[in-house]
């Protein structure tokens, strides 16, 4: 199943139940799968055109009137393009909205450098009150969206548009905390978004060598589920953090800070190392930025 199909069907259900929910797009409703909502909810769907800054301001205005706005566009246009609007009109003004950035990090694939945001996590982390959810698989998104939409703080959701392999089983229920997707004792792999799948692949390879790692899916990059992470690291004392964005300002640094304050150990980071995006298929880019399961395995062994 594609993430965008889930996005559309969940929004459809929620909009049916709750007349406050509005959806805003910036000329990407077709690629993002929200276009279908326009016929059914003509009064609560708005295509702002290619004018993202205005879209965020309009969403904040809708919120000031008690509506629940959900804005959807590609990650770079959902974050860096509209940063001051999010910082001031949304967060500082305490008018929380839901911001959905699609095709995060290397999942932007052939759209290339201009569309491949590696800094969105750092940017959004630095805004007070902002929550960040990095979707792992479509099933998780289906369970997460109805909960996050009623958050009293602004939420940034990053999700690929198309298919990604399942990580969670049927019946999975999302909570705003980390999930231990595989238990282990030799090391902790702390991963987010599409990197949870890659971490699980690495864990399988390590198992063949009798290395038993724990894999944690953080789900929420902010606020972090500190307890789950600390409990795991206290047990393993070895940590590799995996994320689909720049390590600078990302989950890696968030974990480093948590551990420095509570349980200092060495932390390896798998992710983009202060580089720009480029065109390529997901698998090519995973290799280009040293983010493959093999790279994760090597990072564990270095620990």
């Amino acid at each position: 199943m594609e993430f965008r199909k889930i996005l559309c069907s969940v929004l459809d259900k929620l909009m049916e139940q709750d007349e406050r929910i509005c959806v805003l797009d910036a000329d990407l409703s077709k690629p993002n799968g929200t276009a279908k909502l326009y016929e059914k909810y003509p009064k609560r769907t708005f295509n702002a055109g290619i004018a993202e800054a205005n879209m965020i301001g309009v969403a904040a205005g809708l919120k000031a009137y008690g509506m629940i706005p959900v804005v959807v566009t590609f990650t770079p246009f959902a974050t860096r393009r509209v940063y001051d609007q999010i910082a001031v009109s949304v967060a500082y003004a305490k008018l929380p909205i839901i911001i959905i950035g699609t095709d995060p990090g290397i999942t932007a694939e052939l759209n290339g450098g201009t569309h491949m945001s590696f800094e969105d996590v750092a940017l959004m982390r630095a805004i007070p009150t902002m929550k960040i959810y990095d979707a792992v698989d479509p099933r998780q998104l289906e369970s997460a969206l109805p909960k996050l939409i009623y958050s009293e703080q602004p939420v940034y959701i990053r999700m690929p548009r198309k298919e990604r392999p399942d990580v969670f089983d049927e019946g999975y229920i999302f909570e705003e905390k980390a999930d231990i997707v595989k238990e282990g004792t030799d090391a902790s792999i702390i991963a987010t978004g599409t990197m949870v799948y890659e971490a699980m692949e690495a864990a399988k390879q390590l198992e063949l060598e009798n290395i038993n790692v724990e894999v944690i899916s953080v789900n929420m990059i902010k606020p972090l589920d500190e307890k789950t992470i600390l409990d795991s690291v206290k047990k393993t004392n070895k940590v590799v953090v995996c994320e689909n964005n720049n390590l600078i300002g990302g989950l890696y640094e968030a974990i480093c800070r948590l551990l420095i304050e509570n349980h200092p150990v060495k932390v390896e980071g798998i992710g983009v190392k202060d580089q720009f995006g480029q065109v390529g298929k997901y698998s090519d880019l995973l290799k280009a930025y040293n983010m493959t399961p093999k790279d994760i395995v090597e990072a564990i062994k270095k620990q």
């Binding site: 290339g112 450098g113 569309h115 480029q278 065109v279 390529g280 880019l285 280009a288």
Partner: peptide
């Protein structure tokens, strides 16, 4: 065009 490592990415560079 658009192959990994190309000089011709989807958007002008």
């Amino acid at each position: 065009l658009n192959r990994y490592g190309t000089n011709l990415p989807s958007h002008c560079d």
